[in-house]
Every structure is written in structure tokens, then in C-alpha cells.
């Protein structure tokens, strides 16, 4: 009995600090986002008394569904592009020699260690009307002098892919590294061409990595704010921009909370879907795929 009491006490001692901290500073604020959605705004940028559905009514404005749709679309496109680029690269990294592979890994991780703002800004310099890419495109006759590379959806998409690509490469590489490449040989031995072996054996073999890459790119993309803010324009605003606008420009906190609540629900949807999908596979498969 005494030992059990001591174990109990020890568990509390190591659990409570982080539990209380996160409960107070993560759980409560998150609940607050949903609560404040139903609060009125005060003219001075504060939160008023009582409850109202005013915010929800304003969000019915056709502007918002368009922005939400654009956010979803750009995030899907970013995720697709990242996975398309990252999969062959992960395949190459897993198959190449030890030394070169370590260098590649370092080169992929390095951008992750540098300031994200700096990297976004670097694209602004490149895509600038007088920047290198623009001049190159004009010189090649691929763009007219009037073409605007910055401040549109394509620029946002490009920089989003740039920023999120490492987060697709790393989980896909981790999965490809664990993949038994003898299976590819086995498939070819059984008559499959290289492409068939890649599609029927390699892709299913790294499906956990694909799923992780999807989540790691798609979810942060949904919350993009700095990229559309710096390289996007009024026609390429995403939900993140609106949240920031309502917070800093209009100082309408209930409105910002409402948009955040929608964003939170959008993020939770794919997570729940994937959890449900995983439940369907046998517990043993799930365990194996977790690498336990």
C-alpha cells in the first residue's frame, strides 16, 4: 500500500507541472477562442458583456467562404506539390551512399534552421519586378515586362511549397529509409517494370510516411499567414491573413476568434479522418506502423 501511495505521489510530481501549464495556457485559451466567438466586440477593441450571434452572422458574408475555399485549395496544391517533389527525392536519398546521404539530409534540414522570414523575404527579392527570376523570364521571352510575379496566388503557392518542402522530405525519407528495397528487386523478379514496382510496392511501402508528410504540410499550410502577407496580394488572402487583420487592424477580437474557430475545425477534420482510418486497420498493423 505504501509503495503504491509513493508511486502515485511520484506520478503527480512529474506530471503536474506540464499538465497544469498546458491546461492553463493551452487548453483554456483554446476553449476561449470558441467562447469569444459568441461575445460582442466593443468599439475600443475589447470584448463586451453578454452573448451574441453577431460574429457568426458576419461570417456568412460571401467573402469568407471564398477565402476559406482559397485557403483549402492553396493548402491542397502545396501538399500535392511537396509530396510529388519529396517522394522521388526521398527515394534517391534512401538509396544513395552513406556520405552523400548525410550531406543531403543536412542540406534539407539547413533551411529549417534558418529564419523562415528571411527565406520568405529571399523570394520577394527574387520575384521582385527587378529581381533575377523576372529578368530571366523576360530575357527568355517567357514573360512580358508587364507580368507581375509577386502579389498573386502563384507567388503564394510557390513560397508555400518552398517553406513546407523539408517537412515532406523528412518523413518520406524516414519511411523510405526503413523500406526494404529487396522488395523492389522481388517485384522486378516477378516481372514488374521499374515504374510498376515503384507504384505497386514502393508507394504502399511508404504510406505511413506519405500520411505524415500530408499532415505535416497540409495543416501548417492551412494556417499560413506570413507568406500570403509578404508575397501575396489582396486577391490571394488566406484565413490567416483575415485573422491577423481582424486582430491588429480592425481590433475585432470576437471576429478573429470566429475565424480561428473555423480554422481549428478545418484542421481537426483531417486529423480525425486519419485517426478513424487508422482504427480500421488491425491494432497489430497500427502498432507496427507506429514503429513500436
Amino acid at each position: 500500500m505504501k509503495t503504491r501511495a509513493r508511486t502515485r505521489w511520484a506520478e503527480c510530481f512529474v506530471t503536474l507541472p506540464s499538465l497544469v501549464w498546458l491546461g492553463l495556457l493551452f487548453l483554456v485559451p483554446t476553449v476561449l477562442v470558441f467562447a469569444i466567438t459568441f461575445k460582442p466586440a466593443t468599439p475600443y477593441g475589447g470584448i463586451g458583456e453578454g452573448w451574441t450571434l453577431e460574429t457568426l452572422r458576419t461570417l456568412g458574408n460571401p467573402n469568407y467562404p471564398a477565402i476559406i475555399w482559397r485557403t483549402l485549395r492553396l493548402s491542397m496544391l502545396t501538399t500535392g506539390a511537396c509530396i510529388l517533389l519529396a517522394t522521388p527525392m526521398a527515394y534517391y536519398m534512401a538509396r544513395t551512399g552513406e556520405v552523400w546521404r548525410r550531406w543531403l539530409l543536412l542540406l534539407v534540414v539547413l533551411p529549417f534552421w534558418t529564419s523562415s522570414l528571411v527565406r520568405i523575404f529571399a523570394w520577394k527579392v527574387l520575384l521582385h519586378p527587378e529581381g533575377l527570376v523576372k529578368q530571366a523570364l523576360v530575357a527568355l521571352g517567357l514573360a512580358g515586362p508587364e507580368t507581375m510575379l509577386l502579389y498573386n496566388e502563384n507567388a503564394v503557392l510557390l513560397v508555400m511549397v518552398y517553406t513546407e518542402l523539408p517537412f515532406a522530405i523528412l518523413p518520406l525519407y524516414a519511411a523510405a529509409d526503413k523500406f526494404d528495397f529487396q522488395l523492389i528487386e522481388a517485384a522486378k523478379d516477378l516481372g514488374a517494370t521499374s515504374f510498376r514496382a515503384f507504384r505497386s510496392i514502393f508507394l504502399p511501402g511508404i504510406r505511413v510516411g506519405l500520411l505524415t508528410a500530408f499532415l505535416m504540410v497540409f495543416i501548417p499550410s492551412l494556417g499560413s499567414y506570413v507568406i500570403p502577407d509578404v508575397v501575396g496580394g489582396p486577391t490571394s488572402e488566406m484565413v490567416g491573413n483575415k485573422i491577423a487583420q481582424r486582430t491588429f487592424v480592425d481590433r475585432n477580437l470576437p471576429h478573429a476568434a470566429g475565424l480561428s474557430a473555423i480554422l481549428a475545425l478545418t484542421v481537426v477534420a483531417p486529423l480525425v479522418a486519419i485517426t478513424v482510418l487508422r482504427r480500421k486497420t488491425s491494432p497489430r498493423d497500427a502498432l507496427r506502423e507506429e514503429g513500436i
Binding site: D180, Q182, E185, A186, A192, G205, R207
Partner: peptide
Amino acid sequence: VNTIFQSYALFPHLSVWDNIAFGLKV
């Protein structure tokens, strides 16, 4: 020619039936 690998190299995501059918399907 077909090979039996030391580690068998069975495709982990396919059932026994689908493993055997792989070559014929291809």
C-alpha cells in the same frame, strides 16, 4: 527466372493470395 530471397521479400502490404498473384497480375 524467379528468385526466392533469403528474407523472402514478401510484400508486407499484400495478402498471401495477392503476393502469389503479383507476377501473374503484372
